[in-house]
Design a binder for these strands. Sequence first.
RNA 1: GCGAGAGUGGCGGAACGGUAGACGCAGCCGACUCAAAAUCGGCCGGCGCAAGCCAUGGGGGUUCGAAUCCCCCCUCUCGCACCA
Length: 872
Amino acid sequence: MTAPAADAPRYDFRTAEPGWQAEWERRGSFHVEDVPADGRPKYYVLEMFPYPSGKIHMGHVRNYTLGDVVARYKRARGFAVLHPMGWDAFGLPAENAARERRTHPAQWTWDNIAAMRAELKRMGLSLDWAREFATCDPAYYGHQQKLFLDMLAAGLVERRESWVNWDPVDGTVLANEQVIDGRGWRSGALVEKKQLSQWFLKITRFAPELLAALDGLDRWPERVRVMQANWIGRSEGARLRFALAAPTDGIDSVEVYTTRPDTLFGMSFLAIAPEHPIAAAVAARDAQAGAFIAECRRMGTSEAVIEATEKKGYDTGLRVRHPFLPDATFPVWIANFVLMEYGTGAIFGCPAHDQRDLDFARKYGLKVPPVVLPPGEDPAGFAIGATAYDGPGVMVHSGFLDGLAAPEAAKPAAIAELERLGVGEGVVNWRLRDWGVSRQRYWGCPIPVIHCEACGVVAVPEAELPVVLPADVSFDRPGNPLDHHPTWKHVACPSCGRPARRETDTFDTFVDSSWYFARYCSPHAAEPVTRAAADHWMPVDQYIGGIEHAILHLLYSRFFTRAMQATGHVGLDEPFAGLFTQGMVTHESYRGADGRWLYPDEIDKRGEQTAVHRETGEPVTIGRVEAMSKSRRNTVDPGAIIDRCGADTARWFILSDNPPDRDMEWTESGVVGAYRFTQRLFRLAETVAALPAAGSVPDSFSPASRTLRRATHRAIAAVTEALESFAFNVAVARVYELANAIGDAEKAPDTDDLRWARREAAEMAARLVSPMMPHLAEEILARLRPGSPLAVDLAWPDSDAALAAAETVTIAVQVLGKLRGTVEVAPGAAEADVLAAAEADPNVARALEGKRVVKRIYVPNRIVNFVVAGPA
RNA sequence: GCGAGAGUGGCGGAACGGUAGACGCAGCCGACUCAAAAUCGGCCGGCGCAAGCCAUGGGGGUUCGAAUCCCCCCUCUCGCACCA
């Protein structure tokens, strides 16, 4: 794009934007107290804080623009708005940079923060920068260590030997939630299974209320609540014990969890997870079993996904007795599709009514006895083919269950019988697992415990917090530098004083982001949160961020808030009253003649469909519109856009393009259009400002003036409504309409009353755009009303309903629901008059000719509909 | 497979059950200009000379009236998924 021409009088954003930013800062316009004394109601606006990668990207621009519109609008509506910003500053990229570039993670991180802060400030966001913090600062993470110790004391933390997901590339453990399709969510490496001693936060203790409280989050997107409910995964079933026909290695029974105890008579086999203790016992004397288990472990969780249908098993030779059929026994298999982490790590296989069990049974030639008869099926002829039947039906071949409806009547009956026999009981099971937070990394918050040979695990005394990361570390070898450090981990046991060892694991960085929103309430406090500040500001009234955090971050934060409530740090359980999830920013992708990806600024577009390389002139293939990513080089640098067009243009385009919860496409023409509008609005206002100043309110207004005032007051009402409902693209459209009306008024004869109306319109236009284009709004207002308060300090304007009301309304006239004409009438005109006018319309009259009107529908100020029948 | 959401001009999208396509982008015509940019004016769903007809993924239904409500189907997006 060419630089804007320099002649015509123009809005000079290059001067105006930094100027207003400095003025807001000088006035402390966006500062609020931890515990405010003024009586304004509070409103807490928060956007998900960024990872300091070094540069802001368009996703940030969209996120922070959306939040800023809300913050500025609420502020104008009289709220004291808390709108903070900080840095999610721990994490692996800093260590990767250290290894690759020989910089220190701290240096790299703080440099990135400085660069990104400068970029964010250029956006003109209404942030209280006095509240800024970074999670890698001991002043932050020391308090996190305190929260952990309090949770430890409250029994919300546990150290456990457990199977973990090991990411061999990152050299670290991943939470189950961080394994995506069997690969590490960050490195993409195939995840292996490994046993380690780990710290766990007991999120499962809150599973019931984390699920139940979702109902109360009525300002959250429905789909996020559904995703969380599925993740928590409550199921009702039974736990029961199968006795081994012949006890082995001191084990005499296998415990199974099932959601379908009603299908127990359809049992064909029992299957256990490869990690199950019985599997280990069998493997100890059966090399083949051991080989099969090893194969499963190598496959990890990933192979199962790659070969979704490939179910494999190994017959242990063991057999179990059926609880309801004392004479029958069933084989025990080790199966690769049974998960040790879910339920009890063992299932009973009912192939007729479970597809996975059926696939397994068919592969190994096991029996498939049906026990649930689908409605309308003949009991004699019913058999299972390639598809298991998991629908409702009537129990058959099931002893005491025969004739009962499955599952609703049969399930409780089966559970009652299990309980009567003392071999099982009804239970509620959860999919959610405890949150493993240990990471074998340097650049994270140290876990504040000490391991002593004599005393075991000892908490670091509070007086010694924070446990600070050592600065002198080397990244010459793989693994955790804290572990390699010559002195750091060697300490005296706080309990007995003998030599002991510091925990060298650090926290999952999701811990850092699970309470930062609370810290913002009192970011400089000597305790994690000042109760009075948190009581005042929490919960976050409007949280805004990407849908990619729908489960992990939001669920952890909900858990952490409950844990902080349990330990007395806050007085509430839900951190985010309102949640808005924005869509991604996308862009066309381009490939050169050699097939390599090209950045948008390396090409020149020639029309919609064609483009050439800017330097070589070679043809460029225009690819799909996709999420901006470095690998596809379809990114646009926000800094460059702000340099060229200004922050207001970038903000305006982002808001105008489409509804904010959908993916938006970043286009050059869209940016240019937005830039043009900043100039147009400025010019319209300048024209008004150049007119002689208007005096007091005129006694009467001409039709042209009334038309303009109507547009003004309708715009106020419409923009207000749109902003309230996150319909920012609609708010933008209403501003365009007002601008068009102001432009129309320039053509009308210049009268005193019209000048007054034009000033009113231009001033309101500036105030209506001020949440969206705050710099331009200030600039216009300062020119229209020198010496007036800043736009940022003005209350949101009210629409005068009388002025907004129409002088005439257009009523659509339908005959049998088809539009045949329109009539202009006064608002609230009498029904008889309107109907008469409608029938008088020539077009309508023609449509009614020769017909009998059987009904006349009249909706005041809206529509008339004549229902006619046959000839008169 | 389960769950959620979405299908409207060339594009992004508007639309309390009441004139479908607001507003913008792109495009076309014109004015201004030596010329261009910028700006301003006009046109802009399809068919039709017109009257009008057809149009909100497809098919039914409710209603005086349906993009909107109900049922069935198709497509797409997102999430979840050996979860027993």
